[in-house]
Amino acid sequence: MRQLYEFLEQDNRSAGFARVAISTLAVLLVWQLVSMLVTNRLLLVPPAEVAAALVKEVESGAMWTNAVATVTAVVTSFIVSVAIGVAVGLALASSRVLSLTGGPVLSALNSVPIIALAPLFIAWLGLGFASKFVLVIMVAVFPVVVTTEAGLRATDKQLVEAARSFNATPLQIFSTVTFPYALPFIVSGIRVAWARALVGIVVAEFFGSFAGFGFAILSASQTFDTARVLGYVIMLGAMGLIGSVLFATLERRLAPWRQE
């Protein structure tokens, strides 16, 4: 027991996998136990039935259609929101006036639940890709803007002074000091943006689309097919987890000096 405990505390890949496996098993176990108590299958179905529903979706090809719709829409709009977010963050960090003028507008926009505007976007842009695209950008762009500006402003004054002492041009100071320093900040913003993008895509698909995980969840719940609903939720959860792990790893790679 003690050995297992010490193994799990280790900071290596196999211990990491073991930790994930244990927590997944724990969740499945609790889920199984609860679904034995709650016997109304409209409310909750046990894990095995969800797995079976997922297999059926894959066999019928519906999974593929929905995955293509959701993944292409979310990835495209996510990449565009990162690009816009970094560009706006750069602009805000480079100009004090712009930051003071535009900052309040941005934080106002950021605190409005943009998701609530989803029906409006769909009225403007119709059902399909365009409305998903715009809605995801609107929710995902802000964390990137905020962290980009913060990261660029946080830059180490001593490093800038050293670069200036070596006669660096403003562009060189940016590319060799300010930007690399801000990069881990930006990636942490991107990580948050990915989670938000997933929420955005599901809501957009709820309100208006013909394919995608959100669409599938909505149509399954309208036919009280709880197993299918949970199956697609798990798919979305997996997408969120993959993104989160990927960006967390990237953050560590970019800033190894912060760990020790």
Binding site: D156, Q158, L159, E161, A162, A163, S165, F166, N167, A168, Q172, T176, V177, P180, L254, A255, P256, W257
Partner: peptide
């Protein structure tokens, strides 16, 4: 002229050799 600073003025994301070469690559 070249300056040696008190501390922490090395680029943390660059290796020793890249840090030593920093002034040269800037030039």
């Amino acid at each position: 002229r070249a300056m040696v600073f008190q501390q922490d003025s090395l680029l943390p994301w660059k290796t020793v050799v890249d840090n030593v070469a920093y002034g040269l690559t800037l030039a």
